[in-house]
């Protein structure tokens, strides 16, 4: 961290725990899957609305300068973008990066595309919702379970740090999840790298009445950058019936990053503590 960052209000708020340290970037909104609980109604037919690599790199660089401590990359399915690994590698020269993926695009030789992310500052977070293939695939799409089970050990073998994210409509500590925890551990993923989180009732999940209801203050206030603007939290830029939700929009301006970051900081000043920890939203 530079001296400039230490002195910035953003860095101070992060150090005090008022502001989360991670900045999320929605690389794109289209996806090869169409999960039932998807916040952004992503599917192969979704409009791409993608960030340019130059924007992502500028966000990474300015995030570090402002005092943010980590980056997250999500979508849509980020690996649909052919330039993604090289861009993430460059972002990781500024801050640690976690990249979210469904891991269904790593079959055969394409595993080497993901293996480019074998880097100490990068982790790849893969979605897996059940130890039962049919249960997992009902929400996420045909053959998803098999593709994930195949990809995870292959990525780990190539030196990629893999995290697993499980999204559930049930209790976060339900015993029914134990077989899944065992499966994930068996794939070589450390227990601390297995996240279990609730479905958040926004986007398509809201249309299907799935998941936990959450107000703005219940959603972690991580600054989130998209092609449509900057939002409060990675659960902010949701899509409902084809229309982007604007209720958690901070600014349409994304660069310089100080504009949305200061808008976020200004809102945090007057907001009571949320219930995100109790709801397990992350």
């Amino acid at each position: 961290m530079t001296d400039v960052a230490i002195e910035s209000p953003i860095a101070q708020a992060i150090a005090e725990g008022t502001l989360p340290g991670r900045v999320w970037l929605y690389t794109n909104y289209h996806c090869n899957l169409a999960c039932s609980y998807c916040l952004t109604e992503s599917s192969p037919r979704s409009e791409r609305r993608q960030l340019e690599p130059s924007t992502m790199l500028a966000v990474a660089e300015q995030a570090k300068e402002l005092g943010f401590t980590a980056l997250g990359v999500t979508g849509g399915e980020p690996f649909l973008l052919p330039w993604l690994p090289e861009t993430v590698l460059e972002m990781a020269s500024h801050l640690p990066v976690v990249v979210l993926t469904n891991a269904t695009l790593f079959g055969g030789n394409r595993i080497e595309h993901g293996a480019l992310l074998a880097h100490p500052n990068i982790s790849v977070q893969i979605s897996l919702d059940s130890d039962q293939p049919d249960v997992n695939d009902m929400a996420r799409g045909p053959d998803n379970f098999a593709k994930v089970i195949e990809a995870v050990p292959r990525l780990i073998d190539r030196g990629v740090r893999v995290r697993i994210a499980t999204t559930t409509g049930g209790s976060l500590d339900a015993p029914e999840l134990d077989p899944l925890r065992d499966l994930v551990a068996g794939l070589g993923v450390a227990p601390d790298d297995h996240l279990v989180r609730p479905i958040v009732r926004r986007g398509r999940a809201d249309e299907m009445a799935l998941g936990v209801r959450a107000q703005a203050r219940d959603i972690p206030s991580e600054l989130t950058i998209t092609a449509d603007g900057a939002f409060w939290g990675s659960f902010g830029p949701t899509v409902r019936a084809g229309r982007l939700d604007l209720d958690l929009l901070l600014t349409r301006t994304v660069l310089p990053l100080s504009v949305p970051a200061n808008a976020l900081l200004g809102l945090l000043g007057g907001m009571p503590e949320g219930n995100d920890a109790n709801l397990g939203i992350r």
Partner: peptide, 10 residues
């Protein structure tokens, strides 16, 4: 045209 339920928090 946004209203109280759809307007950005800012």
């Amino acid at each position: 045209l946004l209203d109280a339920s759809t307007a950005p928090m800012t």
